[in-house]
Design a protein around this nucleic acid. Structure first.
Lengths: 344, 344
DNA sequence: AGTCAAAGTGCAACCGGTTGCAAAGTGACT
DNA sequence: AGTCACTTTGCAACCGGTTGCACTTTGACT
C-alpha cells in the first residue's frame, strides 16, 4: 500500500538500514547518500509508519491527559477547556499528539490510565485528577512512563515524591481579598465551595490571612459554600440576602458563582460595583462578556500549560530518572469593572 | 519489561500463536485451553502492546478529529467543546481513543491530516473543517481511511460524494423566527455573521422564509452582521439603536451575540422580554446562566455526536466501501424566558 | 607497496503481535 | 486395524521500522 523504507532501498540500491539511518539523520552516513535517499523518499511521498516505529523504539510521539470524571459537569470546565487548548498547543511545538481520557472507561469499566500505559500508547502522562488507587499508582511507577500531576495530586503520594505543577491558591485568595480591602471594604463575604478540593480551602485561607494582615476580624458568618456553579451563586444571595445587605464586597471563588451573585444582586436592585464590589476567580473568557466586566484572579494558562509540557518533555527525554520537582505558578489579579476600581 | 504473549506461551507450554488466538477469542481454540491461557495472562497482568498489534493488523483503535484553525478563537467554541465531549463519550463506548488536531501544525507547518493518515495513527477521521486543498483530499481518498465531515464539508467535493452529518440551519432559522411571529412580533431584527460560512446564510434564509410564510415583508434594514461574539452583539445595539427602538424582537444567530445584545439593551433601559423578545442559537450551557434565561435553538449534540461516530464506525468496520450518506439532524426550539413566552 | 585508522554500508536479529497453512491429535465408524 | 472428518495446535513468515556488529572501502602515511 504505502511506501516503506525497503521500497526506497530497492530503488536506491542500498540496504533498508541505510535508508533508515539517512532518514533519521544518522551521523555515520555520508552527506551524499543522505541527500540522495532523502530525495527519493520525498519523490515517493514516504512517511514513517508510526506503529512500526513505536514498536521498535518504544516511543509513540503522543502523550495522554487524564481528566477528573466529573470534568464535564464541572462548571469551570470553561477554564479547563482553555487550558486544554494551551496544552495541545505546547505539545504541538514538539510534534506530540494528545489523547485525552477519563480515569475509567464508563462503558467497559476499565482503567484508561492502565490502558494507556500498558498498551504503550503514550510516552508520558499529564494527570489532572487527585483520586488514584494504590494499584494504579504502583503501575504508573513501575511502568517508568513519566507523568506530571497538574493542579492536583493524589493523597496517596507525598508531594515531594512526584512531579506536580499548580497555582498558588493561597496567594490568589489573598490577592483578591487584599484588593477589596485596599478599595476600602471592611466587610467582605467569601463564597467558597464544598468538597474536599484543597484549592478552595487554600483560597479561603488566603482570604483569612489578608483580613488578618489588615486588622480586619474574620467573621465566619460571611463565609458561604456553593458548588462552583452559576445557580449556586445566585441562590446564595437569595437565601442570605440579609447578610449581603450588610456588606460591601464579595470574593467569589469561581467566576461563574460571581456571575450568579451579580445577577441575583441586580434583581435585588443592588448595583455592582457601586453598592457592592465583586471579585471572581479563574478569569474565564466570559468575564468580559458580562456587565460590569468581572474583576478576577487569573491563572496563567499559557504559563501553566507551557511549564507542564516542558517538564513532562524533560522527563521523557531524560536518560536517568530525574529528581521530582514542584512547580508553583503565581496567579494574578485582573482589575476590571466589578470591583469599582475603574470608577475612581 | 512487560509481559508478552511469548512469555505466556513459554509458561503455558504452547506456541505464541495459540496464545494470540486464545486472547482474541478465536473460535478454533478449545474452551479448555482458552480458559487456561486467559487465566495465566490475567495472573501475569498481560496487556496487548497496541503498537505491535497495530503494526500487524493495521488497526490503531484511535480516531482523529480535525478542527478548524480558528477554533480556539471561535466564540462558539463553547458549543464545540461540549460537542467534543459527546464525541469522546460515543467513541469510548467502542473503546476508541480520540486524537484532536488542527489541519496544520503551526510550528512545523506540516499537515496534521496527512500525518495522521500516512503515519497510520488513526483508523478514521472526523473532519470539522471546510477548507481542504486538493492534495490533502486526494491523499485522504487514496488512503482508504474512512472519514466523515461534521457540520461542514469542503467546497472541492460534491456533497453526494462524501459522508457528512450536519444540522439543518434553515429549519433552525425558521423555527426561531416563526416562534417570534407566533408571539405576535412583526418587526424582527436578525443578527447574522459575516464570512463565508454557509450555516449562517441558511439561518438567514430560514428567517426570510418564515417571514414570507406569515406574510411579513422582509426588510433588509433589519438584517445585521456580527462576528459570533458577545462584543459584536453588544456593539450592534449601540450603533443601530434607532433601528432597535423600532422593533420588538431579535433573532441572534449565536447565543453569545444574544448575550451581548441583551446586556446592551439593559443598559439602554429596554427590558427583555417585556420590551424586546430575544432568541439565540446553539443552546450553550450559559443560556441558563443569564437573566432572563435565553430562548434558543438547540443543536442536539448527543445525537450529532452519536450519529457521527456510529457512521464512522460503520465505515471503519465495512469490508467494502459503502455508498456515501448524508445525515441531517433537526434542531429544536428551546423556550425559556428571553422570548416572553413564559410570561403569558 | 604495505599498514592502519576512520568512514560508510550491509547483515541479521529484534520489537510483539497476527495468520495462512500444514501437521498432529481425537474419536467415530466400518 | 484402518479410514476419514473434524478439531486443535504449531511453524514460520509477515507487519515496517531500528540498531549492534562486522565487513568493505577510502585515503593518508610510512
Amino acid at each position: 500500500m504505502s511506501v516503506t523504507i525497503r521500497d526506497i532501498a530497492k530503488i536506491a540500491g542500498v540496504s533498508p538500514s541505510t535508508v533508515s539511518r539517512c532518514l533519521n539523520d544518522s551521523t555515520v552516513i555520508s552527506e551524499k547518500t543522505k541527500k540522495r535517499i532523502k530525495q527519493i523518499a520525498e519523490e515517493l511521498g514516504f512517511e514513517f509508519n508510526a506503529n512500526a516505529r513505536s514498536l521498535s523504539t518504544s516511543k509513540t510521539g503522543t502523550v495522554g491527559i487524564i481528566y477528573p470524571e466529573n470534568y464535564t459537569e464541572l462548571d469551570d470546565n470553561l477554564y479547563f477547556n482553555s487550558l486544554h487548548n494551551q496544552l495541545r498547543d505546547s505539545l504541538e511545538r514538539e510534534d506530540l499528539d494528545l489523547i485525552a481520557a477519563f480515569p475509567v472507561n464508563k462503558y467497559t469499566n476499565k482503567s484508561n490510565i492502565q490502558k494507556l500505559i500498558t498498551c504503550k500508547k503514550v510516552d508520558g502522562l499529564i494527570i489532572v485528577h487527585s483520586k488514584m488507587d494504590t494499584k494504579t499508582f504502583d503501575l504508573l511507577n513501575k511502568s517508568k512512563i513519566p507523568y506530571v500531576f497538574l493542579h492536583h495530586f493524589p493523597e496517596i503520594c507525598k508531594e515531594e515524591d512526584v512531579d506536580v505543577v499548580y497555582t498558588d491558591h493561597f496567594i490568589g485568595g489573598y490577592l483578591a481579598t487584599e484588593h477589596l480591602i485596599n478599595m476600602g471594604h471592611k466587610k467582605i463575604i467569601c463564597v467558597s465551595t464544598m468538597g474536599d478540593e484543597d484549592e478552595f480551602k487554600l483560597r479561603t485561607e488566603g482570604y483569612k490571612k489578608a483580613l488578618l494582615d489588615y486588622n480586619i476580624e474574620y467573621d465566619d458568618k460571611l463565609l458561604f459554600y456553593g458548588d462552583h456553579s452559576y445557580p449556586s451563586g445566585y441562590r446564595i444571595v437569595y437565601k442570605n440576602f440579609e447578610v449581603f445587605k450588610g456588606v460591601s464586597a464579595v470574593f467569589a471563588q469561581t467566576d461563574l458563582m460571581a456571575f450568579g451573585i451579580m445577577d441575583a444582586l441586580r434583581e435585588k436592585n443592588i448595583k455592582v460595583p457601586n453598592d457592592m464590589a465583586i471579585v471572581g476567580y479563574n478569569d474565564i473568557e466570559l468575564c468580559t462578556c458580562v456587565k460590569p466586566n468581572l474583576t478576577t484572579i487569573h491563572q496563567p494558562r499559557e504559563e501553566i500549560a507551557h511549564l507542564t509540557c516542558e517538564r513532562l518533555i524533560d522527563l521523557m527525554n531524560a536518560k536517568k530518572p530525574k529528581k521530582s520537582k514542584k512547580i508553583i505558578i503565581q496567579p494574578r489579579l485582573i482589575i476590571r469593572d466589578s470591583c469599582g476600581a475603574n470608577k475612581i
